[in-house]
Design a binder for these strands. Structure first.
Lengths: 115, 115
DNA sequence: TAACATGCTACAGAAAATATAGCAAGATGG
DNA sequence: CCATCTTGCTATATTTTCTGTAGCATGTTA
């Protein structure tokens, strides 16, 4: 079944199980952070809405990400659809700075590797 | 050759090329964030040191990550080995909060899913 | 000059992701 | 009460990515 990296136990890429490495393992999967981002963006929504927002994701992968994120307690199912938990919102809050960073990064790349 | 997701152009998972999605695409690869984290942790270092720190990573994957991170201008090669660029350090700074978040997350998981 | 260390490259096999089709269950409409 | 939608997936084939392991070329050290 679904198995997520957990702080405190060896996971893909970390025998020590350092919490940050477990988190990186979980978030370092295709569309993991994207799903959290989108969920915060549009609020509780259906599987198909998520699918549409995460344009290229396959249903199998989305389903897997959703299961993992639920096990990790970042996402839960409500009557209004899939939604971020409180912990998920805290995670999102810590991702927000990456949004503006990504902007600056894009500008720097444009300058250094114009094209 | 090596190709990284770039803000402003369609990438794996984002036709719009929103910078954050390009960044998520790049960071959402095995050991991407881990490498940045470790590099900041131990400072400039050799390929083999990185390999040892990223316990389970294969040299092929590490090499790929390093090439991507260099193209993205997060990592560069100095006489002292691989190192974070200024932009790489800014990225790291934005990852730091995830460190303490991961702690809290671990504690919550222990409480809700004991064992 | 033999023994390391370093930075990879080269596979083979396993795991993960994509692309696409389609089904089962519940709501909606006539 | 039956057909049509929507929703939430599952199934399968193909491709891509990662691991695990071996090993080579170059440079340094003893």
């Amino acid at each position: 079944m679904v198995d997520i990296p957990r702080p405190g136990q060896p996971v893909r890429g970390s025998k020590s199980g350092a919490p940050i490495m477990a988190l990186f393992d979980l978030l370092g999967r295709n569309w993991s952070m994207g799903v959290v981002w989108v969920l915060s963006d549009i609020g509780p929504c259906t599987f198909r809405e998520l699918q549409a927002r995460c344009e290229s994701i396959s249903p199998a992968a989305l389903n897997m990400r959703l299961k993992e994120l639920q096990m990790a307690r970042f996402v839960e199912r409500t009557e209004r659809g899939y939604a971020l938990t409180e912990m998920g919102q805290e995670l999102y809050a810590d991702l927000v700075p990456l949004g503006s960073f990504a902007q600056r990064w894009g500008e720097l790349l444009d300058k250094t590797d114009p094209k």
